[in-house]
Amino acid sequence: MTAPVETQKLARDWISRSNRVRLWEIALWVIAVAAIFLLPSKLLILTEITILAIFALSLDLILGYAGIVSLGHTAFFGLGAYAAGILARDYVSEPVTGLIFAGFISGLFGFATSFLVLRGSDLTRLMTTFGVAMLLAEVANQAAWLTGGADGLSGIMLTPILGLFEFDLFGRNGYVYALVVLAVLTFIARRLVHSPYGLSLKALKLNPRRSAMIGISATRRIVAIYTLSAVYAGMAGALLAQTTSFVSPDVLAFHRSAEVLLVLVIGGTGYLYGGVVGAIIFTLLRDWLSVVTPQYWMFWIGLILIALVLIGRERLTRWPALLNRKATTRAATQLAEEPR
């Protein structure tokens, strides 16, 4: 059956348009690069933001695209940090090697534990992810001979990145390094979510019943994205270890898992840049609040979380949708009530 050429054209146009690089995306990257020159004194905090953005991006892959709520995502972050740290301390001190090694180790662990998030309800997933992170924290704490235990892992000496760029005191090369990693990972993720695979992930999140009736086998898709997400988180952890030359046992603590959830939720899930936006807002907020009330940062995170939920995440983080959809659709969104 041949469709009228018009519909085909309409369809092709719409699909390419939804895949197009948007103006605000470009602006974001331009600003990120410009910051190297414009904010030379803020590069350390910018590095921190970038690492947090990668970590949140990794969570977005499973939460925003596959709908898996994780309470222990920091397991992969921490594992990556330790992997990179130990590698640099004892064997290879070149950062990119460490980055890849950390991604590999975390990915391996993500693959192994992905089978735990396949089955059961949200609650079971919450529990298993939480449990796995606690387990790992306990292991890191007990295996002091390897990890430094409660004192943290120190003695990380790094050679220049790829043998060319040395970590400088101002954190300039560190920031560029982290930014390049973020850019590469975002590019890969972007490619992925606009592929048939990405579409099937969103389908599994939106309606698992129907997905099965279309012939989607959930298992392999979820295992794959969970593993990739673990790789991302592990790389974020590695960057932290490398740019700070230290791994604190805190990288596996529960509050990190909660924080990364908060970061992603502030920025909005399911459009890849939520992590970046969230990381910027979160870090600035934390810096500002810790000047105002140094000790009770936790109180404010708590308050933000509660406010965010009660006011409604969708309402607060609708802006990406506004940027993406055409005005007509937007009007329709507000008018129509949602079925079910």
Binding site: I15, L199, S200
Partner: peptide, 9 residues
């Protein structure tokens, strides 16, 4: 469905 690199477009 498991092609992750080829864009839908």
């Amino acid at each position: 469905g498991s092609m992750a690199w080829k864009p839908l477009s």
